[in-house]
Structures are given as C-alpha cells and as structure tokens.
Design a protein around this nucleic acid. Structure first.
Length: 590
RNA sequence: GCACCCAUAGCUCAGCUGGAUAGAGCAACUGCCUUCUAAGCAGUAGGUCACAGGUUCGAAUCCUGUUGGGUGUACCA
C-alpha cells in the first residue's frame, strides 16, 4: 500500500539530492526471505546516474533514505541490492488502522461507477454439463465476484444455446425411441435424460452410416444422406417455421434441461442476472451485416453470400451470411453484442469462452471495431484452457466425459470418507454432516480448478482423486475453522492499538494482509482467480506458522494476546473475502 | 499449408512489467499431539526451467530458430 509509494518517492528525492538526477519511479521488489529487509532496490540500472559503483550507490541511497524516512529503520547492501528494513511501527500502524476493520482491505475502488458484463456458462441444451463446463462456470462466477470486489457493477449473463441441429437430434431420438419417457417416469435428471437421447441419436446415426457404407456408398455421402440426419434437418426447418408440435416437444425437453441445469448451478453455487436465449437472438445481426455492406466494410459475392476480408490482420476471409440469406454463428454474435449494449450500456464486456474459440472472438471484435461500435474497445475474450483427461480431450458423444453431477457426488463422497477417518464428527447431526461434506468437497473441487492460471489447460485424472491435504481447498477451510474455534474460545476481548515490537511471525502475517488489496486489484486487472487462490494459500501458510509458533489464548501479556486475536480475526476476514471471490464455502468447524 | 497457445522437480502447479542460491503441494524419508483443531508445523531428498543461438551488467521471463504437444482455420455451432 502506501509504503511502496513512499519509498519510491524517497528514492527519487535521494537521486535528486545526491546526484542531481531525475529518475522515473523505480521498481521495488519484495526482499527475498533469505535476506534481511522488506523491500529491495536493484541499483544496477541507475549506475549511469550515480556515476559510482553498485555497492557505493546502494550505500549512499540507503544512508540517505535512513536519515530522511521514519519508516525505514535499517538497510543492508549485498552486491548491487539495497535491502530496506521497514520499521515495526509502520506495520503496527497499518494493523491498528486497517486490520481492526479488515473490510477496508477486502475491496478496491478501481472499477467505481463502471458497469461490466460477464457472460459465462452458455450451455447447449442437448446434454448435461461436464467438467469443462464446471471450469467455465467457476471462472465466470469468480471473475464476477473479483470485479465486484474492485467496485464494478457486474451483470452476470448466460447466453443459452437452446436451438439448432444438435437440439433437434435429441428431440428426434426421443420421439423415435423414447416411448414417452420423462424425468418423472425414468427418475433421471432432466438434462441427463435429454443427453441420453443425444447419445442415442449418435449411435443410431452411426449405424445408418455403416449400413450405407456397407451397401456401397462412400463415407462422406453416407454421412450426408443418412435418413436420421435428414430427419433432424427437416425438424430444424419445422422448428424455424414454428410448427406447433415441434415447438411443443422443444419446449418440453428444454424445460427438463433447465430444471436439471438449475440444480447443477445451485450446487456449484453460481448464478446469473440475465439470461439470453439463442432462440430469441438467432435472427439478430442481419441488419448489422447490411450496415457493414453500406459502409463498405463487408462485401458480397456473386452467389449473394456476405463476407469480411481480414487477411490484412492475419485473419482469413469470414462468412457472415450464407448465400440463401440465413445467418451463421458470427452473425448472431454481432446482433447479441448490440442487444446487450442497448440493454445495459456497459462500457466493458467479458466473454468467458474456451480457447478453441480464440479465432472466432478475434474476428468478432475486429468486425465490431470496424463498425465503430462504442463498446468495441471494452470487449474482452477471457480465454481459458481445456480440461483434458490423460486419454486426451473429453468427447460427450463418445462417453469420455467427466459428468459435472457425478464429479460433485464423488467429491462429496471423498469428503465423507476422509472426514470420518479423521473422526471429527462427534455431535453433528446427519444433516449437518451432509452440509459439511458438501462444503469440503466443493471447496476441494473449486480450488483445484481455480488455482490454475485460466490460460493454461488442466489435466484431470479421474483415477486420482483430488487432494484434501496441502495446497488444497480443505486446507484453507481448515485454517478458517481453526480461527473460528479460537474466536469462540477467546471470551471477551478487545483491541485498541498496539505499539510494541513484533515477532517475526506476526510481522510476516501483517505483511501478507498488507498485500491483499494489491492482489485483489491485480486479479481484477488480469481476470485471474488464480491470483486470489495463490495469495490465500500463502496467507494461510503464514497464519499456520503464526498459530503453531505463538500462543494466542494462552499468551499472558494481555496486549500481545489482543493483538494476536485481532490478527487472527483479520486473517479470517481476509480468507472470507478470498473465499467469496472464489466461491469456496466457509466451514465453521471441521 | 497458415495462424494462435503451451513446454519449469517423478506428478500437479507458482514464479508480477527481466534481478540475488528457480519456489509450493503430492508421492518418498525424518521429527513434533498431557498447551488454543496434526485436513497442521518443522526438516531431508528431488532441477541442464524442452533444445540451440541472440539481446543485456543480469534471462525460466524478451527476440530468432528447432523439436515436441494442443487448438483453430467449414455456406457447423
């Protein structure tokens, strides 16, 4: 916080007085733990200004700053590194002022008055959610919460892909083979029931292709001529013509899926402020294409199809309207972008979509830029890596997916087993136990997925269960529960202020808490829950050392006892804020 | 073919705009529960940061090339 600004100003002043040189605000590093000090200046870049050797320069700067700043209590020089020691009084002042009410450090005002939309999840309604969707949902939700902690007004949006050929495939299979099966009659969750028919379609379709190939057709022809596919395409046409029976089945089956998704979302702990449905938006965007033609940004081929040429940006030529005048995915996305802006006038808009669509979003944003949309500058594709299995990519049609609901069940079950093994369940009712296992299981899963940098792919091995020890969600939850227990055993206490010396563990903990606002800011700027996850892990490690090495309740010096209780409380509040940003449930006792 | 992304310990990951001897967790091995929750703490061992050049006082980090892996490039969504 302000110490860094202060030190940078001091260093600039020092250069002015010592060397009559103006320098840019210097870069300060945290001093590595094996050296004494809090902040380090590397002096090599400044030798030209100082015109003396590195050690001498560091000595001079150190001496100057020691004489001019009350917050610097000592310094040492090792080679070209100037290590500055910050006085305990700075850290105790910080604790007295900010940690007594830690809500002061759990938010920033970076996004004050700025509205931002985060679109995430955006599922297809023909099959249940899998592990890849879980990553998307957790990322989108977490980024939303991080932005809220940075002061943004966030609109969480979900664009549901509820129409198209894939939906018709499920519908067709259900009509042919379903015998009127419903979620009620089958006992299956609605999205799983529909997914079952999506798989059934694919199986029957493949059989037809095989039969056609056996009768002498080549494979490509067979894929295009299989009767089931033709029927599905016919059904799509009927849907677009609003055929009542088709619409009825479509509404019914989508209804099943929504009920299933709703359950899964609730269990994951994610939510939305606005839903968009492609059945409402798929016709949008055509007038934008016309606008583009008028402005000369797009061009029309002889067959009537409309394209954009982005070869000058190292992108290709891209189709925006088919020769028969119907729209493609890109067309709808143009329309939906306008629609969102009309409704919310948000200057910034985030799309949480996997990196397989990097190209699509480059093109989309480029077009909107050329069309001079006022919101174009604020568009951002939060691209994340796929979740892969050891065997490779998950493929729903081939049954190699890790189902979201199944995985959550397994997490719950593992939490159950481990908790019972540890034998910490006395005095809890079955309901309380259920809720406890759920929190721990979800904590483990969410931390596992969110601690990885969004851009990187995640390898998930279903044979190895997600850990509950070490760098894991339950470890964080456990520390929170410990502090909780400490607080409830503490009796009455109050903290006014503290001015004495600090133990190393106390100071270390305060330094981590001191870093929280900067971390929240960085996580918001980079749209990265991983930064919060890594931070809270380091914080918790520091707290556990503190807790292990120093007595809190048993401390006899009342001032010290109150300080440590206050620091514990502040740590719990910091953890709580990080959990809120990651969507990890708090556990009071475990 | 072209474009984009990735490569760090046996495994899973950190390493901010270049800075000191590259850090955690898991797995392996050692200690620590008659004191506030041992899902914890402390320690040992484990590295040619894919490879080769280059820029720099200094490179896991920046540039170029090579290798290996992934993704995209449809009148699909």
């Amino acid at each position: 916080m302000k110490i860094e600004i202060h030190l940078k100003e001091q260093l600039q002043l020092a250069f002015r007085e010592l060397y009559q040189e103006e320098i840019e605000s210097p870069k300060l590093d945290k001093t590595r733990p094996e050296f004494e000090g809090d902040y380090t200046l590397v002096v090599f870049p400044y030798l030209r200004q100082s015109k003396t050797g590195p050690e001498q320069t560091a000595q001079n700067l150190g001496n100057w700053i020691l004489n001019h700043s009350d917050w610097v209590s000592d310094f040492n020089v090792i080679k070209g590194f100037l290590n500055l020691v910050i006085a305990d009084s700075y850290w105790t002042d910080f604790a007295n002022e900010y940690l007594t009410d830690a809500s002061q450090i759990t938010h920033t005002a970076d996004g004050k008055d700025t509205r931002i939309m985060v679109e995430y999840s955006s599922p297809n309604t023909n099959k249940p959610l899998h592990l890849g969707h879980i990553r998307n949902n957790l990322l989108g939700y977490s980024v939303s919460k991080i932005l809220e902690h940075n002061g943004y007004e966030v609109i969480k949006a979900n664009l549901i892909n509820d129409r198209g050929i894939h939906i018709c495939k499920s519908m067709l299979a259900w009509m042919k083979f379903g015998a009127g099966e419903t979620p009620e009659s089958s006992g299956l969750k609605g999205d799983h029931l529909v997914g079952k028919y999506y798989v059934a379609f694919d199986k029957a379709y493949k059989q037809e292709i095989d039969d056609l190939v056996a009768s002498g057709k080549n494979k490509e022809e067979a894929e295009k001529q299989a009767p089931l596919l033709l029927e599905a395409q016919e059904m799509l046409r009927k849907w677009e013509a609003k055929d009542p029976e088709t619409i009825r089945v479509w509404e019914m089956m989508n209804g099943w899926v929504y009920a299933g998704f709703e359950q899964t979302y609730r269990r994951m702990g994610v939510s939305f402020d606005q839903f968009y449905y492609e059945s409402n938006t798929y016709l949008l965007g055509k007038d934008i294409v016309n606008e583009g033609l008028e402005k000369g940004i797009l061009y029309q081929k002889e067959d009537g199809s409309v394209w954009i040429d982005l070869t000058s940006e190292k992108l290709d030529q891209k189709l925006l309207l088919r020769s028969d005048g119907t729209s493609v995915y890109m067309t709808q996305d143009l329309g939906t972008a306008d629609l969102k802006f009309q409704e919310y006038q948000m200057p910034r808009s985030i799309y949480v979509v996997g990196n397989e669509q990097d190209y699509h979003f480059k093109v989309l944003f480029s077009i909107l830029n050329k069309l001079e949309r006022p919101y174009a500058e604020g568009l951002y594709h939060l691209s994340y890596g796929m979740v892969d299995l050891p065997s490779g990519k998950m493929k729903s049609r081939e049954g190699t997916v890790v189902d979201a609901d199944d995985l959550m069940d397994e997490m719950h079950q593992t939490a159950d087993t481990i908790t019972r093994e540890l034998g910490k369940i006395e005095g809890l009712s079955e309901e309380e136990l259920y809720s406890l296992f759920e929190k721990i299981g979800m904590g483990a899963l969410k931390y596992f997925l969110l601690k990885v940098d969004p851009g990187k792919r995640i390898l998930f091995d279903p044979k190895e269960s997600i850990d509950f020890q070490g760098n894991t969600g339950p470890f964080l939850q456990y520390t929170f529960a410990r502090i909780n227990s400490l607080q409830s055993n503490a009796g009455d206490w109050s903290f006014g202020s503290y001015t004495g010396a600090l133990e190393a563990q106390e100071k270390d903990l305060i330094r981590y808490l001191h870093d929280l606002p900067g971390t929240i800011r960085a996580a918001g700027k980079n749209y990265s829950p991983a930064l919060i996850a890594n931070y809270v892990y380091d914080l918790v490690k520091s707290y556990n050392r503190f807790y292990h090495d120093l007595p809190v309740l048993k401390e006899e010096n009342a001032e010290k006892r109150n300080l440590r209780l206050m620091l514990s409380k502040a740590t719990a509040e910091a953890i709580s804020a990080c959990f809120a940003m990651l969507g990890i449930p708090e556990v009071e006792k475990m």
